[in-house]
């Protein structure tokens, strides 16, 4: 069966072990995790876990059902199209080959900017869809980045 990429958004009760239960499910049943992010939902005792995974239609369906079975899981949303964003931080060395203005322009194209600068290096940030972040990282490679850190995807239903 053909594999599809899916963003699954899980709302969980904030309690000990809950992340282990979710990630353990993926490990134990051999499901794939491309990225996973967690953060608490403001003014509630819930957290939001966003998981990017890949699998056949049957596997994706199983993942959502198995997630539902975890007792502290409140809600599982799986849609083929959600609003999704990812952030990346990239650190560049400062030397005669590097043109800060070019880097600034590049990151502006990806909803970003330069966020930190010192005499030896600068850090730039971009926030965009994952695919576009891929492009951004690729484009930035000509400036010989020292470090690239991606946040993983966060997502929200359109309706």
């Amino acid at each position: 069966m053909q594999k599809v990429r899916r963003v699954i958004s899980v709302v969980v009760q904030n309690e000990a072990q809950v992340l282990a239960r979710v990630s353990g499910l993926f490990a134990g049943r051999g499901y794939n995790i491309d990225s996973l992010t967690v953060a608490s939902i403001p003014n509630s005792d819930m957290s939001h876990i966003t998981i990017v995974t890949r699998g056949s239609q049957r596997v994706i369906e199983q993942i959502t059902k198995q997630l539902h079975k975890i007792i502290p899981v409140y809600k599982v949303v799986e849609h083929s199209s959600m609003v999704e964003k990812e952030m990346v931080l990239i650190k560049f060395p400062l030397n005669e080959n590097v043109n800060i203005a070019n880097i600034q322009a590049l990151f502006e194209a990806y909803n970003g900017s330069i966020v930190n600068a010192s005499d030896k290096m600068i850090i730039a940030m971009a926030a965009d869809e994952s695919k576009r972040i891929d492009h951004c990282v690729e484009a930035a490679s000509i400036y010989k980045p020292i470090e690239v850190v991606r946040s993983g995807v966060v997502a929200m239903e359109r309706q």
Binding site: R58, E61, Q62, K65, Q66, H68, K69
Partner: peptide, 8 residues
């Protein structure tokens, strides 16, 4: 009673 059994 377990939805995860269905279609697994």
């Amino acid at each position: 009673i377990d939805p995860a059994n269905i279609g697994k």
